[in-house]
Amino acid sequence: MKKRKIPMRKDLLTNTMAPKKELVRIVVDKEKNVYVDPTGKKSGRGAYVSLEPEKIAEAQKNRVLEKSLGTKISDDFYKELYAYVDHQKARKELFGDE
């Protein structure tokens, strides 16, 4: 059986390559709205971040996403992102890799 290629993406927070399934995509559209994109298919400029809640808090402090995406990001979005990442990490620990 042929081995499948695993798509790799660069994690903006740790600057390392990781499988796409282990990261979450953040998207900025033309109207400068920022979204969490769990499907990875929304149109707009995207950046991938790891599923580590500590890294999200660090990114908020250092404004890493704002610099990369070129737009102002609200504290509410960071709260939403932190909740999403925390939930996904808990799911992964509970159910394992899918």
Rank of each mutant, 00 (worst) to 15 (best):
K92A: 08
K41M: 08
E58C: 03
T16W: 08
I6P: 02
V64E: 07
E98F: 15
K72E: 12
E52V: 11
D86C: 03
D76H: 12
L65G: 04
D29T: 07
H87W: 14
E58S: 02
A57L: 15
D76P: 00
N15P: 04
D86R: 12
E31D: 15
I73D: 02
R63T: 11
P7L: 08
D76V: 12
L13T: 03
V34M: 01
E31S: 12
P7G: 05
K3M: 14
K79I: 11
K61G: 06
T71A: 02
P53T: 04
R4H: 03
D76E: 13
E66R: 13
L23Q: 05
K61P: 03
N15G: 10
S43C: 11
E52Q: 13
P19H: 03
D37C: 08
G70Y: 06
K20H: 09
T71V: 15
T39L: 07
K32N: 07
S50G: 05
Q60C: 10
K20R: 14
K79Y: 10
K55R: 15
E80G: 11
H87L: 14
S68A: 15
N62Q: 14
L94M: 14
Y48R: 06
E22V: 09
E54R: 11
K20Y: 05
K79T: 14
R4P: 13
